[in-house]
Design a protein around this nucleic acid. Sequence first.
DNA 1: TTCTTTCTTCCATAATTTTCGAATTAGATC
DNA 2: GATCTAATTCGAAAATTATGGAAGAAAGAA
Lengths: 104, 104
Amino acid sequence: MNVASKLEHHAEELSALGHPVRLKVLRFVVQGGRDGTAAGDIQAHVDLPASTLSHHLKRLVDAGLLTTRNEGTFHYYAADYKALRGLTDFVWEDCCKRGKGTCC
Amino acid sequence: MNVASKLEHHAEELSALGHPVRLKVLRFVVQGGRDGTAAGDIQAHVDLPASTLSHHLKRLVDAGLLTTRNEGTFHYYAADYKALRGLTDFVWEDCCKRGKGTCC
DNA sequence: TTCTTTCTTCCATAATTTTCGAATTAGATC
DNA sequence: GATCTAATTCGAAAATTATGGAAGAAAGAA
């Protein structure tokens, strides 16, 4: 993946996280572990209409931050921990390389 | 600072980073070190009209990710490394505490 | 089949964001 | 003062995002 599209991708991820509801959802799912958290449990946590929440969940999945899996009528969402680590690392990449001294 | 407003604040920071130009700017400034980077140098890096860039810089400063300092007619922008660290840590806070096993 | 539960998609409206030329400010230099 | 340079603010159009009721889909139970 080239530099420009990597930037676009990470910007998309950050944009997805840049909304109070979605950030709250992501943290809840991150804390829920690898097995994932059911959409209904997420809804109880954020207290919003199902349709509104569904849009936000889709945005997080589209960005590649969450994965989803269905079990019967239940839809489970889990964090893509690798993607998330890649994102938080990206922001710090080459910190201070153009400055004098170190800082990070 | 309470939990809700901390969430709002970090969502605002992430939203500020959730744009390709602003993410590129932030990384450039992060790499520029503590002394900061002049607006003109940033403009050369992103190749955009000054007015457009100025809006993006303001957004990053308003979010608390950049600080600014004037020297004559030059405006220097520097990363608030503490704020940035607080942000990237926040996303991972209490990872897996509601799940079984560990992952982070 | 009919009903219930769980969740998504459709649709329209409202609100916010992005863009950049033109005008303006602020400081340095002649 | 006049002028140049560096950068911000104004203003207005275009594009994107956010919200949630209503309708639909998918799985299971009665």
